[in-house]
């Protein structure tokens, strides 16, 4: 049974079909890329996978369980975590608290426990602390743990989003343009990190990215979308050589 299975998913906004008959199957430990020009429907697919939008047609399964009718937090509980294209950190909270909220589902206790500071509370909070600091360390953010997320430099905010998503302890991680706005050095560092976390936490990662260097460099399989339709899929080499893809990106080839 695949970890993630998406079958013929279609979503329409008014008259516009944003995504049509999208099909994807992912196994554990896979690294898959999702590329395509702006407005091709990539983020919309993420939004359907995480329950923000409900598809008009089609089915989606995580571990064999249908998620079409699930609310976002229920899907997260099944082990799907995401980052956002337009960074959505909890800006007025500290870096550490951002990551702790990512682990929300795993550090639960009653309000009464919280008020009375029971052993259960202390135990859960200690684990939350250890986990959060550990994740921050991976992204070299541990020294900034007590700063407000808003005050982080842009690149650190992107990294913090990934750390926060990892705190969910996902099986499937959805990265929405993680390299947007990063320079070349930061991008190659990010590529290493993506590999590192995939191996360390045994994740399947689905990544949307415009940076071809990153996508071609780390993804094992790539899906190309244009106007909501999957126009090509395969290994980086296949996709690179596919004339349909080149056309979508560069326009029709000039006749020679």
């Amino acid at each position: 049974m695949p970890l993630l299975e998406v079958k013929d998913v279609t979503i329409r906004f008014g008259g516009l079909t944003a995504v049509s008959e999208f099909t994807l199957s992912m196994d554990t430990h896979e690294l898959v890329g999702l590329i395509g020009p702006n407005g091709a429907g990539k983020t919309t697919i993420f939004n359907m996978l995480t329950g923000v939008y409900r598809p008009n047609e089609g089915e989606m399964f995580v571990d064999g369980q249908s998620i079409v009718d699930n609310k976002p937090y229920e899907i997260t509980a099944l082990g799907v975590a995401r980052t956002f294209q337009n960074i959505r950190l909890f800006k007025e909270l500290t870096v550490l608290d951002n990551v702790k909220i990512g682990g929300h589902m795993h550090y639960k206790y009653s309000s009464a426990s919280a008020v009375l500071h029971t052993n259960r509370f202390h135990k859960a909070e200690d684990i939350a602390e250890v986990d959060a600091v550990e994740l921050l360390r991976i992204f070299n953010l541990d020294s900034r743990a007590q700063q407000y997320a808003r005050n982080l430099p842009y690149g650190d905010q992107r990294r913090l989003e990934i750390a926060r998503a990892l705190a969910v302890r996902p099986k499937l991680l959805l990265l929405d343009e993680p390299a947007a706005g990063l320079n070349t050095g930061e991008t190659s560092e990010l590529m290493e990190k993506i590999h590192e976390i995939r191996d360390r936490f045994g994740l399947a990662i689905l990544v949307i990215e415009h940076n071809m260097e990153l996508v071609m460099g780390i993804c094992e399989r790539i899906f190309v979308l244009n106007f909501g339709k999957t126009i090509a899929q395969g290994t980086p080499d296949d996709v690179r050589a596919n004339p349909v893809v080149i056309e979508a990106y560069l326009g029709e080839p000039a006749e020679v």
Binding site: T50, G51, V52, K71, P72, Y73, T76, A77, A81, R82, F84, R88, L89, F90, K91, E92, L93, D97, K100, I101, G102, H104, M105, Y107, K108, Y109, S111, S113, A114, F121, A124, E125, A128, R164, A167, V168
Partner: peptide, 22 residues
């Protein structure tokens, strides 16, 4: 506590909070 952090997360960004399992 985790309860209060959930409150704050909702205040800061409801969609991100849901995505974090709140």
């Amino acid at each position: 506590s985790s309860v209060g952090r959930a409150f704050l997360a909702i205040r800061e960004d409801q969609i991100a909070a849901e995505a974090m399992g709140v």
